[in-house]
Design a protein around this nucleic acid. Structure first.
Lengths: 148, 148
DNA sequence: GATAAAGTTGATAGAATCGGTAGAGATATG
DNA sequence: CATATCTCTACCGATTCTATCAACTTTATC
């Protein structure tokens, strides 16, 4: 499961939005996080359409988190942009599909292995919220004051 | 880390070669495992060039495992065809590279998370050999006799 | 209600990757 | 030498990824 640029941008933007609880304009986000503006529009729109963000148009508008930062987990974001966590479709929990050339998924030894990988990944990403992520970032920042 | 078709083909071929300790022809492997022949040539060649297989040309030739089935782990095969196990280059152990747009890898909270994912994946794939995989396949086959 | 700020949408495009094919070349064996 | 087999280089079509553009719609404020 290679993380796409899109997902990385999304998570960076969400980290900001999890802190600011006021609407933030696309332009501001794009500048602060150094994300191509037009590309970011797509990303935020998709997050909006999936109920993670809400938007307000017009003056004073922008995007803000619709849920609580504790209630958005990394797994959800990754799945939204990069698809199922599982390495093969046959090992996916939420999006199972037998592999095209697989005669018998239940007799496939590889599938068992890949289910282990998926489960391990999901255990990490589904138990980590935006709030946790920001908390970690703060913890690291305290350890290396001055940054860079 | 989505598993490519190439990797799946490679593992299927290796499972066969881990059982037969005689040279097996490309054509035979392609037929038995239902893999496009020309595509399989590439795959076996790459495994050969990386010291996992050895080859013999001419009559009676073919490919065979160069190492012991216990000494080839899934992690090696996956890395060969699909690249590093880590979800981001900055979280890779063997192929670390700072992300293009990352100012400070050490201060990146996401990186820490992705290292956890990488480690969990590696722990599974690097501790499982071809021999283990075949053993698992046999175990499943015994549970569902008749197959299919 | 005019106007401007802001989000929404669809089309497009270049680059990279993936799955696969073609064919000539090299080499071992009988 | 003839044949069987692997080796190597090039190429192709489809898809995905990243990103950009232009046009449109909605809303806040004056």
């Amino acid at each position: 499961m290679k993380l796409s640029q899109k997902t990385k941008y999304a998570l960076r933007a969400l980290q900001v939005l999890a802190r600011e609880r006021e609407p933030v304009r696309i332009a501001t986000l794009a500048e602060r996080e150094d994300i191509p503006r037009k590309f970011l529009e797509h990303i935020l729109l998709e997050l909006n359409n999936h109920g993670i963000l809400s938007s307000r148009r017009g003056r004073g508008g922008g995007y803000q988190l619709r849920k609580q930062p504790e209630d958005v987990c990394l797994g959800d974001v990754v799945r939204l942009f990069d698809g199922p966590l599982a390495p093969t479709s046959c090992s996916s929990e939420r999006a199972f599909r037998a592999c095209d050339d697989c005669k018998d998924p239940d007799g496939c030894a590889l599938r068992g292995v890949m289910r282990e990988v998926r489960d391990a990944t999901a255990r990490i990403l589904d138990n980590l919220s935006l709030a946790d992520l920001n908390q970690r970032a703060d913890a690291v920042a305290r350890l290396t004051p001055g940054g860079r």
